[in-house]
Write a protein that binds this DNA or RNA. Structure first.
Ligand SMILES: [Mn+2]
Ligand SMILES: [Mn+2]
Ligand SMILES: [Zn+2]
Ligand SMILES: [Zn+2]
Lengths: 139, 139
DNA sequence: TACAACAATGCAACTTTGTTGCAAAATATT
DNA sequence: AATATTTTGCAACAAAGTTGCATTGTTGTA
């Protein structure tokens, strides 16, 4: 996987640095979405806060991760699939945030339905975020 | 309209204060959604920042306004329709954020489609937020 | 491998945003 | 009008995010 990480960075024309390798591997390890704070914790102060901000920003721009809107002022980030590129994200899947455990899931198997908007409104991006109880917390 | 504002507050068993009247009337005047910062500006420093935070929180709890998640760490608030009550919101309409002018619309005429989630996932709330160009900015 | 060019990082300082406790003021209740 | 209850403003704080710049690390080339 370590080789994979480096390859991804190279593919997106990013120089290979410790911070980027570490943060990107965190995404692969956890599998789920992470907020800036999560990353700060999990990287256990290996990097400056500012570096994490800048790394996330770079990753979003390059199409490596995408943002997930939330109703609590804390944007989450998750890995993009292969289709995403520098200027163009194609993360048209549903996101699920568990009210219980707080985990944010990319529900890749469910895609966002197309909706018809009133005249004059042109959609560029559609985000469908569902909150509730996840399959781990469901007793 | 002034009478209306007071009536709404009373209906939700809130005491009638200057801050609440002003902030609630702002929502009626603008028509669209507002972030905390917008309100702070439009109320032109009439109230303490803390009062605005607390008022918004109260309004959400009482079912007077609802939150709209965004991908840029700035939750927006908009008026609920009549159906919403203290514990139970029913704002199942689509939201639209214009990338151009920044206005956030409640698209009341388009309701959020039901989606089928994987086994074990139980939806409590669904938010569909679309960004793009609004009908004013569409040339 | 060594060097130069370039990019990323850490640090400090700062701004913005949000939270909490408490006394003063406003509102509701009698 | 007097009292009980809520709300507000203030201050102090915590958390989150931004910016400039010197230092360090990375990359491509000699
Ligand atoms: Mn996703
Ligand atoms: Mn709405
Ligand atoms: Zn859960
Ligand atoms: Zn617009």
């Amino acid at each position: 996987m370590q080789a994979n990480i480096t390859e991804i960075l190279r593919k997106h024309q990013l120089s290979i640095t410790e911070a980027r390798k570490k943060i990107l591997s965190l995404f692969w390890e956890t599998g789920n979405a992470m907020a800036h704070g999560d990353i700060e914790q999990k990287s256990s102060a290996d990097f400056d806060r500012v570096t994490i901000y800048r790394t996330l920003q770079t990753f979003v721009e390059k199409g490596i991760i995408h943002t997930i809107p939330t109703a609590d002022n804390s944007v989450r980030y998750a890995l993009c699939k292969d289709e995403c590129a520098a200027g163009h994200h194609h993360d048209d899947h549903v996101h699920f945030i568990c009210d219980d455990c707080g985990i944010t899931y990319c529900i890749d198997e469910v895609s966002v339905p197309k909706v018809k908007l009133p005249k004059g409104f042109k959609a560029a991006q559609t985000d469908l975020v569902i909150s509730g109880t996840c399959n781990k917390c469901d007793l």
